[in-house]
């Protein structure tokens, strides 16, 4: 294979400015077919259906939109969804950084198992996570039977939402921070030690600034995932209007009452926040790339 690769024409060394969405002269076939299919599938599955939300919302008119999407109950649901997602993302920021640090820097027994376990929230269906967490934190559960007598109610309370969202978001932080931490050379830390810095000062002033873009990206990813999360939350939340009702659940309830316009207006509001989060994540990643490039 290497012999063939060496004798092959090194065509793409000189980069030509691409013409209008067109290919540069290439001997590789299938450009039209692969890009055509990609765009077709993207439009049919993602773009056209998503545009339905905004077209339907636009047809609603401003007054109706405000009445539905910014009603007292909806505002309470956003507050809970965004607040709990932000709190969970921050908790994951702290513990995710710690887990990434421990996985990269230290050796301990069963490290490979622990490493695999970190991805559990990606692999375990949200409904399964939801009923398992509820069983744990319910007043007769393993954790609940200890917490509830001490006045800490998790299941069927807003705190339960935070617990579920923390479960869902952890791997985003760990898997974003881990590679950056692993790629970081020891030389800068050695230099800091030579100059007399203790480990804490080195971490705060050398390591943390280097991994900050990755850490913030991970926190933003965890937040974005948590805001829209549904399956793991509804079992543990209790779902009381104004108190422990998340925004996605409000959409489902509007749908169950055949109030499509109401469901759509709330969905559009959530989508706008999601896209803002996506934009922020892209900016953070660009910042991270610039950091590592220099």
């Amino acid at each position: 294979m290497t012999a063939i690769a060496l004798s092959g024409p090194a065509r793409h060394t000189g980069r030509m400015a691409p013409q209008l969405l067109a290919r540069r002269a290439s001997i590789i076939p299938g450009f039209g077919l692969s890009l055509g299919f990609t765009l077709f599938y993207l439009c049919v599955i993602v773009l056209v259906p998503l545009s339905a939300i905004f077209i339907k919302t636009a047809g609603l008119g401003w007054a109706d939109y405000v009445r539905v999407a910014l009603s007292e109950r909806a505002l309470a649901a956003y507050r809970l969804s965004f607040g709990a997602a932000a709190l969970a993302a921050l908790i994951n920021g702290g513990f995710g950084l710690l887990v990434a640090w421990v996985l990269v820097r230290y050796d301990f027994p069963l490290k490979r198992v622990v490493n695999a376990l970190v991805d559990l929230p990606f692999a375990l269906p949200t409904a399964v996570a939801g009923i398992a967490l509820t069983a744990l934190y319910a007043p007769n559960g393993w954790l609940g039977s200890w917490l509830v007598p001490r006045g800490i109610e998790v299941a069927f309370h807003p705190l339960g939402v935070v617990v579920a969202l923390t479960f869902v978001g952890l791997p985003f932080v760990v898997r974003t921070v881990e590679p950056v931490l692993a790629d970081m050379g020891h030389d800068v830390e050695e230099a800091a030690a030579t100059l007399g810095a203790g480990r804490l000062a080195t971490f705060r002033r050398v390591v943390l600034p280097a991994i900050l873009p990755a850490l913030l990206t991970g926190i933003a990813l965890a937040f974005a995932r948590a805001v829209g999360e549904y399956g793991s939350v509804i079992f543990i939340a209790g779902n009381l209007p104004y108190k422990s009702e998340i925004a996605p659940l409000l959409i489902v309830q509007q749908l169950e009452q055949y109030n499509y316009a109401g469901a759509t207006a709330i969905a559009a509001t959530m989508l706008l926040v999601s896209f803002a989060a996506l934009f922020a994540i892209n900016l953070l990643q660009a910042w991270g790339r610039k950091r590592t490039a220099t």
Partner: peptide
């Protein structure tokens, strides 16, 4: 699709 809520 990753940044869209499952419900949406």
């Amino acid at each position: 699709p990753f940044s869209v809520s499952p419900v949406v």
